[in-house]
Structure formats: structure tokens, C-alpha cells
Write a protein that binds this DNA or RNA. Structure first.
Lengths: 293, 293
DNA sequence: TGCTTCTATAACCTGGTGGCATGGATGTGG
DNA sequence: CCACATCCATGCCACCAGGTTATAGAAGCA
């Protein structure tokens, strides 16, 4: 019988949460999707794992047995992934936007001289995962934008801060201004990241700086091109100043904004060391080069 | 990062076989499918697992690391499945055709009296898996038709033998006969099981009894209804005499055949004991009831 | 040079998986 | 006692991952 680790995570979530609705919320999937998956798991196993009731899902005896083994399976998998990465002598460096990365490629080039046996790979991730691959073990370290959810389970060092501005459609009334007050943007439709990104989403909608004024979400996207496209077609979006250099679009302009906090760029890595010395060395070099303030 | 155990099995097969083509054959999937899956695995891990060459696929260092851990992961999963089944106090009894099962339901009814804390479940499997769920760990024991591939990894006890006949379209010239000689069927289009069933497929095409005369395969199917449908629409198929009772179709007739070996029905279970006493007891009871000769 | 044997790519099809809307069951509070 | 809230289940639809076949490309070998 074949199973996906995703199914195991689903099961674990339902088991802990004690309800489909609750677990669905935590996993950012719909409740019917979970219903179906759990049911399929039970059918495949030929075993009832949960006792359904109005008040939720309770583990059966078999369910408890299963639940007691699932964490070890998931951990075993994670461990295998990490060990393989170590053996490959590949350092996977995740990032979200070229702006934050800055001079990192140069640092990598130098590192390649010093440690020719290691390969360094820059991997871009979309905004469905603001940890840039760390959360899923798809990166060994990452250049991130703070704050983001899951941050507390990682070691994060701040590198520098960067003012934020706004991307506007070229024909927008405010597009002619030299500078924009954030308050003037309160009622504009914003481009937002997916709900699963929590605090990250909030930060880029600047909900903190709105004095409780509600947000209008005009589009939800996870990728730079869609993001820019959404702005071109009428939405607005906060962005770091570097975005102006790295994302250009004929129908989109960038303007500084007053009244929003700056974006903080950081370097993150898992708490347990994974690649020992080589990774330390690379991250130290990046920090030296990028750190400002 | 999420992975399917199927992917791990694919990887293990390629690693052992040293080639995509060879592994694809063993896994009964196409070579391009494997190419894609392995490539995807490498991309997700961000690591090259194989060195490609004209002569095949060789593990890289990282690949060897990964390969050394995969078996443990797969075993861990199997073990979790079995433990869960045990905890559920469910005995899953696989079967392929009602004819072989015979009086088993009565035995189960009695067993239920003696061991009320256990639930017994009869699960029908299609012919893509002649081990009736044992191969994939989806059954704890099975009523099977011998021989079938993978049999040597199981404990099999023969229960009885049953003559084989042929299912013919009602308007077939031979349909009026009392009895048919197998030789007369040599050139008929047969309904066959999938290629992955190996010896099982051969047995039901009776390649042994053809003196090297080639088989015409008129249809490939894995399920009883399709099977019967194929016969109704012009193919023929060997079948145990019990099939005449359990599968009726207005346009299909059953006739005894001379010149083919009988079908042997057996009771199979995994070698390592899984459910200790309860399963032993049930299987013993079934054997007592069904064993003839 | 032509044949074989590998892997990679392209085009297409199907079934699984997820989303939305809704139904049904069961407590709960006015 | 009825309206409501809160669960889980179901039906329908859209999409993509994964499979298949056909074919290309590279490299040994006779």
C-alpha cells in the first residue's frame, strides 16, 4: 500500500486537533478535502481510525496505535532528506525576491573558490512559503523577509532594513506623486499573499499601520509575475525599494510611502546544525557582506 | 517536502537495477514515467541522485546515502500498517472470486461467535494483484488461486482443486457442445489479466497446454464485470466451474474443457505471523471446512 | 554505416485531489 | 419548542500530477 507523507501529516493534524474542521483550518485546506483524505486512509488501511461524533473526531484504539507511529515516520523521512543533502555537498540557499539577495551571488562565487568541493544553489521560492524552503526542508538556509510564521522555530539573524514603498498602476491618480502617504492607500485594493502565510501577509498589507481600518484585498497571489500583473490591472501592493529595480513592468510604477514600517531582511537556518562547518562559513560570509546598521 | 512511498519504491528499483529501462520493466510502468518521477525526486531534494550515462544510471554519493535509508523508511511504514491492523482487531481476508471462497462466510460467522472481540472482513481484490491484497499489505490472509507470482514469499496451503472450463459467447459455434477440447480453443481470442501478473496470467491462458501454439489475446481486464463483458462481445476465457454459478450473463455460457489442468485454490498468509492466535484460529477453521483431497 | 540500447522529450488522457455549496445530524439558548 | 450553531458528509466541478505512446538523441558495437 502506498501513502503520501502529506496524508500522514493530515492524519496527525486531525488526531491532535480532534476535529476535521479544526485541522482543516490549521492545514489550510478545506474541510471536505480532509474528510475525503481521512476516509481514504481508513479505507486503504481497512481500519477505522476515528470515531465520528457531533463533537468531533476521537481516535479509536487502532487510531492511537497508528498515531503513535506516524511522528517517527515523518521524522525518519526528514532525517533522510537532510542526510542526503549533506552527502551531496550541496548548500541550498532559498530566497523569495532578488532584492533581498543583493550581493549574495558574489559571496557564493568567492565561497566556491575557498571550498570547491561544495556546490551552492540559489533557489527561489514563491510566497506560499515565506520561509523560502526552510519549513519544508527544501533549503538549508534562506534569505528571508521578517517577520514570517514559523520564524520562532529557526535561527534568524537580521541583515539589514529597507524602506517600503508602493507599486501602483501607471494610470493611478497617485502615480504622479513624488511620495505617497500610506493613509491615502487605505481604501485601495491590495494584492495579498495566501492566508496560510499569516503574519507575513499581514505585514505586507500593513494591517498594523491602518489604525483598524479594514483591508480591501483585490487579488491573492504567490508569484512575482502574477503579483506584478495584478498591479498592472488595477491593484496596489507594498514592496521594498529594491523591487523597483528588479521588477519592472510598463504599466507599473514605484513610489516611496510614508507611514509604513521598513522591511527587515534576515538570514535564517534550522536550529539543529545540518551541514556543520561549510554552511557556517557561507552564512558568516554572507552576513559580513550584507550586514548594514 | 512531501513524498509518496511509491516514489521511494521507484527510486529503490532504479538504484538496484542500475537502469531506468530495467526498473521500469520490473515495476510495470513505462520508462518515461520513471524518468519523470526520478527527475522530480531529484529536483525536490535539490540533489543529483544518479549519474546518467549511456549504460544506465549509477548512484552518486548522495544517492547512496539516500538509498541506504530508503529501505528503513519503507519497512517502518509497513510495520505501522501492520501494527494498526493488529490494534484494530480486524482480520482482513482477501479473495478474488466468490467461487473460491465457498463456505468461508459460514466459517466467519462461527468465528464471530467464538471470538466476538475480532471483526473479520472479506475484501475482494481485482486481478491486478493475484495475491488478493497480501502483496501490498492490504489483507492479513487470502483465498487465492495458484500459482501466482510472489507466492514464494508467502506461506501457502492448498485447499482444494477445481476443474476448469471455458466461458463462451452464447452464439459461439462451440457453445452448443456438451464438452470442448482445449485444442479447439487455441486460436480463439482470450481475455487475459495484466502483464504484471506473470505466471498467473500464463496459467489462465493455459500457455503450458498449448504445445507452443501462440496465444491470441483479445482483451486485457482486471475486473469480473469487464471480464464477462469481454466474453459477451466475442472473446473466450478459461474459468473454474464455480464461475458458472457466480457469474451469469445472458450472452455467456460455460462449458467444461478437456485438456487443461484444474485450478488449485489455496490459503495464503505472510511468513511472519502478524495477528498471532486469532488469525491462526480462523485460518485453521477455514482449512478444516474447505479442504478436499 | 547501420543496429542496439540507453535516457530524454512531446503530446495527450485519465483519475485523484481540492474547492465551493449544501445537506443532515445533534446539541444549545432564547 | 423553535431557531441557531457546529460538526461531518456529499455532489459537482476544475485542475494537475502521473501515466501512456511515439519519437528523438547520444553512444557503443559489429
Amino acid at each position: 500500500m502506498d501513502v503520501d507523507t502529506r496524508l500522514l501529516r493530515y492524519f496527525a493534524a486531525v488526531a491532535e486537533e480532534g476535529s476535521l474542521t479544526g485541522a482543516a483550518e490549521r492545514l489550510f485546506v478545506s474541510q471536505p478535502a480532509l474528510t475525503k483524505q481521512i476516509r481514504r486512509l481508513e479505507e486503504d488501511l481497512g481500519v477505522r481510525l476515528f470515531a465520528r461524533s457531533r463533537s468531533g473526531m476521537a481516535l479509536t484504539e487502532a487510531g492511537r496505535e497508528f498515531a503513535s507511529r506516524v511522528p517517527a515516520l515523518l521524522d525518519g523521512w526528514d532525517e533522510a532528506v537532510q542526510a542526503t543533502g549533506r552527502a551531496a555537498r550541496v548548500l541550498r540557499l532559498g530566497f523569495l525576491d532578488a532584492g533581498a539577495v543583493g550581493a549574495v551571488p558574489e559571496v557564493i562565487a568567492e565561497f566556491r573558490q575557498a571550498r570547491p568541493e561544495w556546490r551552492v544553489e540559489l533557489r527561489q521560492f514563491d510566497w506560499s512559503d515565506p520561509s523560502a524552503g526552510l519549513a519544508r526542508g527544501e533549503a538549508d538556509a534562506a534569505v528571508v523577509r521578517l517577520p514570517f510564521p514559523g520564524q520562532e522555530r529557526l535561527t534568524v539573524r537580521q541583515l539589514f532594513v529597507e524602506e517600503r514603498g508602493v507599486l501602483l498602476p501607471a494610470r493611478h491618480p497617485l502615480a504622479n506623486r513624488e511620495t505617497v502617504e500610506f493613509r491615502e492607500l487605505w481604501d485601495e485594493p491590495f494584492v495579498a499573499a495566501g492566508a496560510e502565510t499569516g503574519a507575513w501577509r499581514e505585514h505586507w498589507l500593513a494591517t498594523e499601520e491602518r489604525d483598524g481600518h479594514p483591508v480591501r484585498v483585490g487579488a491573492v497571489t504567490g508569484r512575482p509575475d502574477e503579483w506584478l500583473g495584478a498591479v498592472a490591472s488595477g491593484c496596489v501592493a507594498l514592496a521594498p525599494v529594491s523591487a523597483a529595480r528588479f521588477h519592472s513592468h510598463p504599466d507599473v510604477v514605484f513610489r516611496p510611502v510614508r507611514g509604513v514600517s521598513p522591511s527587515r531582511v534576515g538570514l535564517a537556518r534550522p536550529r539543529g546544525r545540518t551541514h556543520e562547518a561549510a554552511l557556517d562559513e557561507l552564512l558568516e560570509a554572507i552576513t559580513q557582506r550584507l550586514r548594514r546598521t
